[in-house]
Nucleic acid binder design. Structure first.
Length: 274
DNA sequence: GGCTGGCCCTGTACGC
DNA sequence: TGCGTACAGGGCCAGC
């Protein structure tokens, strides 16, 4: 079992990075030769004006006095980790990119499995980042409603869980929080149609699951750590994900696990009946 | 344009 | 003990 940085984990990282990066300049950078990470170099010479987030993407707003401004977009993939260190160990086998800041310290990006990605684009121009370009609404904003979720889910006949993971109906939900939200809403992950009332329940469940993750500093099962190296505590508050074989907290039925569209999925066969 | 399946990638667990 | 294999899974891409 491995954790994946989803919305709560990325937001935790963003909140720690913002005060340490905003207002500073990138004086030097380096990257792994892979095209996934090489764009890190394009950030050299820019000032950092802010660090924001869309779904699971970290967006570092850059400013070099020219227009349009640009953005350093970082996706952590499954095992990506950002930290700020006094210096960079260029020989570290998992180092994928680094940015030296004015003042001397370094923002480093380590990613064991290289599923992360780095882009530098003109601000707001995400056409080259397909998932970000078509990203659904932020689940913790007012723009995310049960009606909107119902319309988005109704546009496709794919399994509801597959749709959630596509990032189109809603941004930032990955495998952990999809399983948790579907359990909370008592919806079977393999159904291909969700009624309006159930979509409203699912929207609320997504907010509940993500808010729990945020409140507990993210979920740590193995690899995830925040910028300061701390681990999350949400793994102690999961109802469903990673608990196959254990009794459902609601009805006592043994939770089951199966593969849906190549993603491990845990659900309760009784209270998430099809 | 939507959907499916394969691929990337490496640490870990497990069987022999 | 050491080796080989399966598995984990977010996002991209080719093919249908």
């Amino acid at each position: 079992m491995r954790p994946v940085p989803e919305l709560p984990e990325v937001e935790t990282i963003r909140a720690q990075l913002e005060p340490r990066l905003a207002g500073r300049s990138i004086t030097e950078a380096g990257s792994h030769p892979s095209a996934k990470f090489a764009p890190a170099m394009d950030a050299i010479g820019h000032d950092i004006s802010s660090v924001s987030r869309r779904g699971k993407y970290l967006i570092v707003a850059l400013d070099d006095g020219r227009d349009p401004r640009c953005e350093l977009v970082i996706h952590l993939g499954m095992t990506g980790r950002l930290s700020i260190a006094a210096d960079v160990d260029a020989r570290h086998p998992h180092l994928r990119a680094w940015w030296r800041l004015d003042g001397g310290d370094v923002l480093t990006f380590h990613d064991i499995r290289r599923f992360g990605r780095i882009h530098v684009v003109d601000a707001g121009r995400y056409e080259t980042i397909a998932t970000l370009h078509r990203l659904g609404p932020e689940p913790l904003n007012d723009g995310f409603t049960g009606d909107g979720l119902w319309r988005a889910l109704s546009a496709s006949r794919r399994c509801v869980k597959t749709q959630l993971l596509s990032q189109r109906p809603v941004a930032g939900v990955g495998n952990i929080y999809a399983d948790e939200a579907l359990w909370l809403a008592q919806i079977n992950p393999a159904v291909r149609y969700v009624s309006k009332p159930r979509a409203a329940r699912l929207a609320e469940a997504i907010r509940t699951a993500l808010t729990s993750g945020l409140r507990h500093g993210g979920t740590t099962l193995r690899d995830y750590a925040a910028v300061d190296g701390s681990s999350g505590r949400n793994q102690h508050h999961l109802h469903c994900y990673g608990r196959a074989g254990e009794p459902c907290e609601r009805c006592g039925t043994e939770l089951r696990r199966r593969i849906i569209d190549a993603r491990g999925t845990t659900w309760c066969p009784t209270c998430q009946r099809r």
